[in-house]
C-alpha cells in the first residue's frame, strides 16, 4: 500500500444530489443539482470550483463537509467514508473538515462576542477547558487585535467578520476547509487582505482548500487546480494555468470570454 500513489485527502466518487420539484399531482419530478461528480483533493492543495449560479457548486460543497447526505456516491475523507459514520463520529470528523460561508453576518450569532464565537466550536467538541490561549492565538493569527475580542459581530467590518469566521474554523485544527465564496461580499480593497490571510493560514496549519468562487480572476490567482461546473456536472478539471490558457470545453471558453477583463493592459507598478 505504501508503494502506491498517496491516497488523496478527499475523494468524491459519483456523487449525486437531487431535489424534488413540486409535483403537479402526478409523478414528482426531481432535479439533480449535482450529477455524478467525482473529484480528489490532495493534502495542501487549493482546488477551485467555478460555475454560474445554479450549477451545483454550493450543493457540492455542503455534501463534501458531511452536511447533506447525497442520494448516491461516496465522500471519503482521509480514508474514512464520511456518510458511513455514525452521527457522533461524523460530528467529531467536522473538526478536520470545515465550511466557511460567504456571508459571515448570517453565520455568526449576533449576541455573542468575538471571543465566545471562536471558543464555541472548541466547547461543542469538548475541548473548552483551557481554550483561552488557543482562542487568543488564533485571533492574533487572523489579525483581530485584542481590543476587538469583546465586540459583537455587528460592530465589526465585513472583512473583520470574515476573519472571525475563519478563526472559528481554524481553531478546531482542520485539514480541509471548504470556502463558499468567502470574499464575494467584500469590498475590492478588502478581498486581497482575506486572500492573503488564507494563504498565510494554509502555510501555518498545513491546510487544503476547496474554494467555491464565481470570480474567475480570483480562481486563477488562488487555486492550483480549477473545476468548472455546469448543470450539476464537472465539465472541465485542469490546472489553473492550463484551464485559463488552453480551455478545452466550449462552456469554459464561453465563461472566460464573458468575464470582463481586469483592466486591459497591465499597469506598471507605481
Amino acid at each position: 500500500m505504501d508503494e502506491r500513489a498517496p491516497e488523496p485527502l478527499l475523494r468524491v466518487e459519483g456523487l449525486t444530489q437531487s431535489f424534488r420539484l413540486r409535483s403537479a399531482g402526478r409523478q414528482a419530478e426531481t432535479f439533480a443539482a449535482v450529477n455524478d461528480v467525482s473529484l480528489a483533493v490532495a493534502r495542501g492543495e487549493r482546488v477551485g470550483i467555478v460555475g454560474e449560479s445554479g450549477s451545483g457548486k454550493s450543493t457540492l460543497a455542503r455534501a463534501i463537509v458531511g452536511l447533506r447526505r447525497p442520494d448516491c456516491g461516496r465522500v471519503t475523507f482521509d480514508g474514512t467514508d464520511v456518510y458511513a459514520l455514525g452521527r457522533r463520529e461524523r460530528v467529531a470528523l467536522r473538526c478536520r473538515l470545515q465550511l466557511v460561508l460567504q456571508d459571515p453576518s448570517a453565520s455568526l450569532d449576533p449576541r455573542m462576542s468575538v471571543r465566545a464565537l471562536v471558543r464555541e466550536g472548541l466547547e461543542v467538541h469538548g475541548r473548552g477547558a483551557g481554550a483561552d490561549a488557543a482562542v487568543a492565538q488564533v485571533l492574533d493569527q487572523v489579525g483581530i487585535p485584542a481590543s476587538l475580542h469583546e465586540r459583537k459581530p455587528h460592530a465589526l467590518s465585513g472583512g473583520q467578520r470574515q476573519r472571525v469566521a475563519l478563526a472559528r474554523s481554524i481553531v478546531l485544527g482542520p485539514d480541509l476547509v471548504v470556502l463558499d465564496e468567502p470574499v464575494s461580499a467584500l469590498d475590492v480593497s478588502v478581498q486581497g487582505q482575506i486572500l492573503n490571510l488564507l494563504l498565510d493560514l494554509q502555510d501555518a496549519h498545513d491546510l487544503a482548500y476547496v474554494f467555491v468562487v464565481h470570480d474567475l480572476a480570483v480562481a486563477r490567482w488562488f487555486c492550483h487546480r480549477v473545476l468548472v461546473m455546469r448543470q450539476g456536472r464537472i465539465v472541465e478539471d485542469a490546472s489553473s494555468e492550463q484551464l485559463f490558457t488552453q480551455p478545452q470545453h466550449p462552456y469554459t471558453r464561453e465563461l472566460l470570454a464573458a468575464a470582463p477583463s481586469a483592466l486591459g493592459e497591465p499597469v506598471p507598478d507605481a
Binding site: 467590518s157 475590492v188 486581497g192 487582505q193 494563504l199 486563477r220 497591465p266 507605481a270
Partner: peptide
C-alpha cells in the same frame, strides 16, 4: 485599487498588494 485588481491577473505573485484597513 487598480494595483490590487491587476495584481490578481498575475500568477507570479505570492501575495496580493493590499490597501490596509477598510473604507
Amino acid at each position: 485599487l487598480v494595483r490590487s485588481v491587476t495584481a490578481i491577473g498575475r500568477s507570479d505573485l505570492e501575495r496580493l498588494p493590499v490597501i490596509e484597513g477598510a473604507p
